[in-house]
Write a protein that binds this DNA or RNA. Sequence first.
DNA 1: AAGTAATAGAGAAATTTTTCTTTAATAAAA
DNA 2: TTTTATTAAAGAAAAATTTCTCTATTACTT
Lengths: 217, 217
Amino acid sequence: MVQYSKKIQAVPEPTIRRMPSYLAFAEGLMRKGQQFVSSTQIANYMNIDPTQVTKDLSYTKIVGKTRVGYEVKAIVEVLSDFLGFSVMDNAFLVGAGSLGSALLHDSGLNHFGLKIEAAFDINPSTIGRKINDVEVFHIDQFRDLAQELNVIMGIITVPAENAQTVADLMVAWGIKAIWNFTPARIKVPDDIIVQNTTLYSNLAIIFNKLHQEKREE
Amino acid sequence: MVQYSKKIQAVPEPTIRRMPSYLAFAEGLMRKGQQFVSSTQIANYMNIDPTQVTKDLSYTKIVGKTRVGYEVKAIVEVLSDFLGFSVMDNAFLVGAGSLGSALLHDSGLNHFGLKIEAAFDINPSTIGRKINDVEVFHIDQFRDLAQELNVIMGIITVPAENAQTVADLMVAWGIKAIWNFTPARIKVPDDIIVQNTTLYSNLAIIFNKLHQEKREE
DNA sequence: AAGTAATAGAGAAATTTTTCTTTAATAAAA
DNA sequence: TTTTATTAAAGAAAAATTTCTCTATTACTT
Ligand SMILES: NC(=O)c1ccc[n+]([C@@H]2O[C@H](COP(=O)([O-])OP(=O)(O)OC[C@H]3O[C@@H](n4cnc5c(N)ncnc54)[C@H](O)[C@@H]3O)[C@@H](O)[C@H]2O)c1
Ligand SMILES: NC(=O)c1ccc[n+]([C@@H]2O[C@H](COP(=O)([O-])OP(=O)(O)OC[C@H]3O[C@@H](n4cnc5c(N)ncnc54)[C@H](O)[C@@H]3O)[C@@H](O)[C@H]2O)c1
């Protein structure tokens, strides 16, 4: 079967996953005043192969200097742009519980181009409060505010059993991308982007490695 | 170069990443009283190819029935065991800030075999408090408590710039695996398992897809 | 009872991602 | 100045992962 929606020359997802770490590393070096950084250094920091770094960076317009490496400033600038971190996108967060609050406190999101404009909940005791200067509204106000503030992303941090309900509302209300932190998989139309972020995958990997170690003993 | 530490017949990491979702789905079905589930159903829920599910499950000892599927109960039991979720591992969490508190509130970790026995911080105003029944100690007490409680995992939720310091302490204190939630990459001896869990990779992927959509318009 | 459709499972093929190899450039050392 | 070592970059090869193809099985429909 021919895949019509096939991406042409898409950047590999693993590459995109690594890039924010390159960026964060480069930002750190910049603060320390370092001008150049080699793929070897980055690879050493990341615990990966140096050619992997070179290949990853080759997807951007960054060019390195033989025997010197890449200009730190260039990495920061180009990578920020490339990753979409240098323009602000507006998001709404639904579920101002423990994880939601943590995200609202995380300045890294803001630094990397995501502005959480407002939070929503159904719990009367949370509504009206401000968490790190972000106000918590009743979920019924989502639609009007989303249009008003040009919000394209919705963050789901409600209990798993309510994830689908919230997702449906988000879609109906014009959200283009959903960042789902619950372990539940949500069903949305094809044109809506969904990113599932589940802790338990990571837990499974750690356990797997731990047990492998045990087996080898 | 010959790779001596090469794993024999290891389960692919992507497979392990998907398994917790299969498990969660099966648990949901079990609660609803469903007895069997087919790879098609699971695939539909996960938005992936059915043969992927079949292949993933083939790494375990689960066997399916033609035209019927897999027994839900078997998936739950075998997968829990396989993923190491049915035996409790003890962990310590260092950095009882916003993310740390959220993790301490997350019952899912407990459900999937991770018991956070204690939390540690250096902030006097946090020390002595209890978060969801887990006590926050001064970091100096880590060592003694780790030995006493047979803790093998350390969870790092301090600010990124302190991640390496905390990791060094954890290693010195006999921790076998580190779950690092900071964007910083830590350097540890080869025999220590490290799992980095960084939000910003996910953010980068969403932005990438969003921008791709924009480009295609 | 016969036919049909859905499914597990095994193996092959295709695709994606990582690693290796080679080349050219050039900074630093001799 | 010459040599050496380090590096980026491009392309090839290898490895890992996903998707496809085929077969056998069997529940359900006719
Ligand atoms: N706490 C964590 O560290 C953590 C980590 C990873 C994933 N998760 C997942 O994130 C989700 C939320 O976890 P949590 O610990 O923050 O739970 P929580 O109970 O602390 O917060 C959930 C919030 O959602 C609100 N809510 C419920 N239904 C809603 C609805 N229909 N519309 C709007 N708001 C609604 C609740 O009032 C509550 O404030 C869960 O699925 C959990 O598995 C949590
Ligand atoms: N908040 C989030 O939602 C979120 C999400 C993803 C990742 N992160 C990352 O997690 C880390 C923590 O974020 P946070 O928002 O919880 O920060 P935070 O400031 O709320 O919490 C950090 C805690 O660590 C403690 N601490 C600092 N140095 C310490 C040390 N040496 N030993 C022990 N404790 C120490 C502080 O006292 C504080 O309580 C950061 O690296 C952040 O990038 C946070």
